[in-house]
Nucleic acid binder design. Structure first.
Lengths: 225, 225
DNA sequence: GTTTAATTGTCAATATTTTATCAAATTGTT
DNA sequence: AACAATTTGATAAAATATTGACAATTAAAC
């Protein structure tokens, strides 16, 4: 019986990074690692690593540390990438194609079953073995192919309408690249990738870094006088 | 004189979303808004909105609320998108081109000055008025064009080498789409967009949603018996 | 086989973030 | 012009997240 206390968002957000580092360790041929060593690599506290992992069970061994391969597989199971997920991409522009072309997704169980677009010039084209279809076939395709996840790489203006169609067709999750928040029923997962938000966060940090540099420079000059 | 206490990451992460909603309000022709109304739209507490904004100053007025246009401009100033940022894109594949084609970036002061790639078939092509150049010209271009930000849309394997060249050429920030963490001096900003991490977070949430659904179904059946 | 060193998982202590509360200020109404 | 309704900004309280400490356990050294 699974423990039913809610895992915090922050912990979940860190899991993929742990997974990534464990994958790297495996590639380096490292078989075991302590929270301390991993802490040094990842620049997080060892305590946090142990605390995070213990939300899901005791994967380590005292005096030994963690077995890299075992932990890697356990995290895959926790994240749910040990199962197969069927995914479609809606919007076959550059961004949609970029996602389709990222090979590793398929390695992790995300099978791209189809791509859709409204642009007639794109319909019929084949990207990485996946045909681009007209948006009319959307609902039928989702049901027939047991699609759970839809990547939404279309402009903001079309997003709400398509999101509603996806929900009605029974999609479980939307990977949303449109620059807006979607409103969906609470049993539909929306994971946002708001690139403009990301660029603004970067902008904030650059700006405050520059401000700080200026301030320090000023301080230095004042001291000289 | 600016207040020098550190603004928390969580607050900064929320600013672009406030900015987005304020933009929408302006488009709707709404001139003033209270933290309560905004709270209802954004699905965050009014208290958090007021608290967040007050990190940067008192932009509202008691009994009135916030002037939408004024707050919008103030947030733009805080984020630093009232100034011009020169940006280059390294990696002119689908992802790089998707970014180049997103028009709104330029509206917010991010001027795409150049694109770079190693693929000879791409070099010389023009995307949205920007020529794709060979990677050899990188350093000189950065200096001559006062480039502050580089978007890194290249495979993991090339990322560390290019990142180092960028740093040496004096870049201020890297918008990193490569599926790895870069190590750079602390005065260089790195904003990561790890799409695979994002998809894994989605996967976790879908999986636990499905688990929960199963659990409830089971509970229901047990009750019936 | 015993001892020492290493390391986890857990619990307690800190630190941070979020939410609630309310006096003070402002607007709009009568 | 007085009064009721709003609404902020600030402070306090509550909730959450992170870090530290250490007993229990294991591995490795001797």
């Amino acid at each position: 019986m699974t423990d039913e206390r809610q895992i915090s968002k922050a912990v979940i957000a860190r899991l993929p990074r742990y997974y990534r580092y464990l994958g790297d360790l495996m590639e380096e041929g490292i078989e075991r690692i302590s929270s301390n060593e991993l802490s040094a690599r990842m620049k997080v506290t060892a305590s946090q690593i142990r605390q995070d992992l213990n939300n899901f069970g005791g994967f380590g061994q005292q005096g030994y540390g963690y077995n890299v391969r075992y932990l890697y597989n356990e995290i895959a199971r926790i994240i749910g990438i040990d199962r197969q997920h069927n995914i479609i991409i809606i919007g076959a522009g550059n961004l949609g194609q970029a996602i389709a072309n990222y090979a590793n997704f398929e390695k992790r169980g995300f099978m791209i079953k189809g791509m859709f677009d409204i642009n007639p010039r794109l319909i019929g084209l084949v990207v990485r073995g996946v045909e681009i279809r007209g948006i009319d076939d959307l609902e039928q395709f989702i049901i027939e192919n047991e699609v759970q996840i839809a990547a939404l790489t279309i402009p903001k203006s079309k997003a709400p309408e398509i999101a509603e169609r996806l929900v009605n067709a029974g999609i479980k999750a939307i990977w949303n690249f449109a620059h807006m928040d979607l409103s969906v029923p609470e049993d539909v997962v929306v994971e946002n990738v708001h690139l403009s938000d990301s660029l603004m966060r970067l902008s904030y940090r650059v700006s405050s870094m520059m401000d700080e540099r200026e301030r320090k420079e000023k301080e230095r000059l004042e001291k000289e006088v």
